[in-house]
Amino acid sequence: MQMLDQVQKQKIATGEGFIAALDQSGGSTPKALKGYGIEEGAWANDEEMFGLIHAMRSRIITSPVFTGDKVLGAILFERTMDGTVDGKPTPQALIERGVVPFIKIDKGLEDEANGVQVMKPNPDLDILLHRAKGLGVFGTKERSVINLANREGIAAVVKQQFEIGSQVLAAGLMPIIEPEVNIKSPERAEADAILLDELLKALDALPADQQVMLKLSLPVQPGLFDPLVDHPRVLRVVALSGGFARPEACVELAKNRGIIASFSRALLNDLRHQMSDDEFNASLGEAIDEIHGASVAKTPVAA
């Protein structure tokens, strides 16, 4: 088993900040570009589309406000990892800014069964993990979705997540296990409770020298996930915004001790392609400050 980078591990374990999620993939890229002020007709093919989203991510990563002081890590899409920022491989550009790189590794979701969507098969995962490790990436993120409080379905999600997590650990990387509870679920509170139970069983079964990270939807009941925050097999618990707008996401996050943000839309929502660099940096800085406050001080910054 390969070793984790201990400096990066320490930063993620104890750093006062949050993780930026910059990992929208193919299906959600047009939506992300539209939010950024670039309409669908602005590109002729996928290569041009991915070029535009890479330019957006590069602009974020090179912004003077995007540094390791408040942004502990950033989750990248595979194409972003393989690209360059300021002439350097993207993971290297992040490391030089004090930001720990992660990569999204799942290949999307299967159709719903038993109230959940497990991840699609990923036969080339070991190749991707080896490439990521070589580029200086610290960890991975893999997402499943829970729509209903179905124990059989939730148990299947957790089992698959921890199997992939073991593969990631063996490659010398840190897995972020992400069983997302849909915040629009009519059974959200019950799903939270079943998920907590299944996660604790899976964590207790891990070898004593192994740790994983967890990326979870903010629970209906504040503090529900405290046992996960305190678990010796958990390096850090991070939260997704899950469709909440930033003010609401920050309010919910601030109610949960020990959990830091890993927001995507709630971080990027106010950024526009047409902004001047000064406007762009000011808007991004405001979002970073607000999310940092909710993650660390547990006090939502007044918008």
Rank of each mutant, 00 (worst) to 15 (best):
Q6N: 00
Q6G: 04
Q8R: 14
E16M: 11
F18S: 06
I19Q: 08
T29P: 00
G41F: 07
A42W: 06
H54S: 14
R57M: 13
R57G: 11
I60W: 01
T62Q: 15
S63T: 11
P64W: 05
G68H: 03
D69R: 03
K70Q: 14
L72C: 01
I75D: 02
F77I: 02
D86C: 13
K88V: 11
K88I: 05
P89I: 14
A93L: 09
V100C: 04
F102G: 10
K104A: 15
G108Y: 01
L109S: 10
L109K: 11
D111K: 13
A113V: 10
V116K: 07
V116P: 04
Q117A: 10
Q117H: 02
V118R: 14
L125V: 08
D126G: 05
L128K: 10
L128M: 09
H130R: 15
G134M: 10
G136R: 11
V137D: 08
G139V: 12
G139I: 11
T140N: 01
E142S: 11
R143Y: 07
S144W: 00
V145G: 10
I146T: 09
L148C: 03
E152N: 09
E152Y: 04
A155S: 14
A155C: 11
V168Q: 04
L173E: 02
I176W: 01
I176D: 06
P179A: 13
E180T: 07
K184G: 14
A191L: 13
I194D: 11
I194H: 10
I194N: 14
L195A: 11
E198Y: 00
E198D: 06
K201D: 03
P207T: 13
P207G: 12
Q211I: 04
M213C: 09
M213Y: 07
L214K: 02
L214A: 12
K215R: 13
P219S: 13
L224H: 04
F225N: 07
P227M: 14
R233G: 08
A239T: 07
L240R: 07
S241T: 03
G243P: 01
F244Y: 10
A245N: 03
P247S: 11
E248V: 14
E248W: 03
A249N: 02
C250T: 09
V251Q: 15
L253S: 07
A254W: 03
R257S: 15
G258A: 08
S262C: 13
R265I: 06
R265Q: 05
D270L: 09
H273Y: 12
Q274Y: 12
S276R: 02
A282E: 08
I288M: 08
I288E: 01
E290D: 12
H292N: 11
A297P: 00
K298A: 03
A302T: 01
A302L: 12
